[in-house]
Design a protein around this nucleic acid. Structure first.
Lengths: 143, 143
DNA sequence: GCCAAGTTGCGTCGCAGTTGCAAAAAGTCG
DNA sequence: CGACTTTTTGCAACTGCGACGCAACTTGGC
């Protein structure tokens, strides 16, 4: 991914600066969905002078360019991930905050159908399933 | 619904105050999905002395008690609706901000399947389809 | 190396929502 | 009904995330 950084900057007419290099490096090294502060933490671990404002600006820039996606999983802080080539939705573990990705062609199709039935075109959509590890693999009644 | 207000307060151990009566009245009269400020606007049209803080506090209270649901459709302001007996998802018209509700048993089932396949139980979920009115009813290809 | 343009860090601002506090209202009991 | 306790309210100050203006500083082209 590192090789991409220069290409992306050139392509987007952005200057290849130290902070950007670091931030993009951290982003492509992150397989989870960090928020801006966590991103800043990771970035400053490498290059301590980079400010939070720059993280915000870079992240917005990359999002506008379609390089990043921003999600809001409900704790008030936006979380980021590098835009995948293929669309996916999210399973959020409410106990740990971890996020798993999934994709269901069937659900996509059903959404398409629903939108159409109402006379709309889909601009985007968001499916988040908030889950917790299942305690009782099978049987065993509960409250 | 008006009759509910007293019942709800009693049941929840809340005092039946003027502001609460007005706010709950407005809520049950609202079939759209107003945000806190719009709610406050409507409330103060009836009783001008009620403060925004009280609207927030009441709305949070009712949400904790399961009377209201809060959504975040992406403009930074949370929007509220009275909790329906039946779960539903949302179609958001990005041009107007209007919200339509829908329900798909099939999608629900598929989500259940997906969660289970990953070893989770669903706590809740959120499906939002952001749409715009379709300009070209049929035919007329475009890139 | 020099210069114009883009970028950064800092501090500040804005907005949505929350909270501490003192005053006011609700419910309770005699 | 009136005194008393507890909950609510309005106000204003505050919080947290994120955005922004500005002066100083890099970047990349010549």
């Amino acid at each position: 991914m590192a090789g991409n950084i220069e290409a992306i900057c050139r392509e987007l007419g952005l200057r290849l600066t130290g902070p950007r290099r670091t931030i993009m490096q951290v982003l492509s090294d992150s397989s989870d969905h960090p928020d801006a502060i966590e991103l800043h933490r990771r970035v400053t671990a490498i290059e301590p002078t980079i400010s939070l404002a720059t993280v915000y600006r870079t992240v917005n820039l990359l999002r506008e360019k379609g390089v990043l996606e921003r999600h809001n999983f409900g704790n008030g802080r936006a979380r980021y991930e590098t835009a995948a080539s293929e669309h996916h939705d999210h399973l959020i573990n409410v106990e740990t905050g971890d996020v798993l990705e999934f994709h269901s062609e069937e659900i996509e199709r059903l959404q398409e159908e629903i939108a159409r039935a109402h006379g709309f075109d889909i601009v985007s959509h968001k499916l988040e399933i908030y889950v917790r590890p299942r305690k009782r693999p099978r049987g065993a009644g509960q409250s």
